[in-house]
């Protein structure tokens, strides 16, 4: 972004990569797949790079409002400094926090989740999606809480899967009744409380009931949790976990 600013330009959209997308090995693949799609669609985009910082979601949901607002205002200073108007994220947590909680703190942007953004590119004809290798495959979609219930977006990801011509098989708990992967509310960064099962394993079992070959999702944290769940069930052979951006990119052999 700094380079754009140096040239006095403003990109069409800022891609807020997020911590997972920047550092987690599995999530970095989502970042790269999404960037491939952006490039393919000739989107003029920028990232904050080293000027980006955690949006503050885990701090806020762990109860540390102070740290959250510090993070939020730091990011807002940077974003406003560059005059950013439109943001896209591959993480529903960044999407939710920046979209819902930043405005009151002075950060007002149009924020889109990457599935919404990709859907709009398809609609405008800037990107084409064809079934390719996913055509007819049984695929289930795991709704990320912060995309689905938190913001009511259930259709954009399903719409993209439809474009991939997959056979969408829903889990019993889907959309507004979807079940959490277990990572939200800063659970990602701590061990679970004592119980009789891990949440991600329970959710993976629900996915297995659909006999899908792929669990599609749209969140780097769901990705980690579901991947671990599949491993715990020793089901890696016949059950993959993929982000929708990865599916579209690989369907197209990008």
């Amino acid at each position: 972004m700094a380079e754009y600013a140096a040239q006095g330009k403003l990109p069409e959209v800022l891609f807020f990569v997020g911590c997972a997308g920047s550092f987690d090995d599995r999530a970095k693949k989502i970042t790269k797949a999404f960037v491939k799609l952006l490039n393919k669609a000739n989107i003029d985009f920028a990232v904050l790079g080293t000027e980006e910082s955690c949006n503050g979601d885990p701090a806020k949901r762990a109860g540390n409002e102070f740290l959250f607002q510090m993070q939020a205002m730091t990011n807002i200073e940077v974003l406003n400094g560059y005059g950013i108007k439109k943001i896209v994220t591959t993480c529903p947590h960044c999407f939710n926090t920046i979209g819902n909680e930043y405005p009151e703190l002075g950060g007002k942007y149009e924020v889109m989740h990457h599935t919404q953004f990709l859907k709009s590119l398809l609609k405008e004809g800037r990107l084409k999606v064809e079934g390719g290798k996913f055509k007819g495959k049984k695929i289930t979609f795991h709704d990320p809480c912060y995309l689905g219930r938190a913001n009511g977006e259930y259709e954009a990801p399903r719409n993209l899967l439809e474009k991939l011509e997959v056979e969408l098989v829903e889990m019993k708990r889907n959309k507004s009744n979807g079940m959490c992967c277990g990572a939200g509310g800063a659970q990602m960064f701590k061990d679970a409380e004592p119980g009789d099962k891990e949440i991600n394993v329970a959710r993976t079992e629900q996915a297995q009931e659909t006999s899908a070959e792929i669990i599609a999702t749209g969140c780097p944290f769901c990705m980690v949790m579901m991947t671990d769940g599949v491993k715990a069930k020793n089901a890696e052979e016949n059950l993959q976990v993929m982000d929708i951006a990865e599916m579209i990119a690989s369907a197209d052999d990008l």
Partner: peptide
């Protein structure tokens, strides 16, 4: 404790890790 670690990370290096 693990959350304290994550929060310290966010504070120091802008990411929970």
């Amino acid at each position: 404790q693990e959350l304290n670690t994550a929060m310290t990370n966010i504070e120091n290096n802008g990411a929970p890790w």
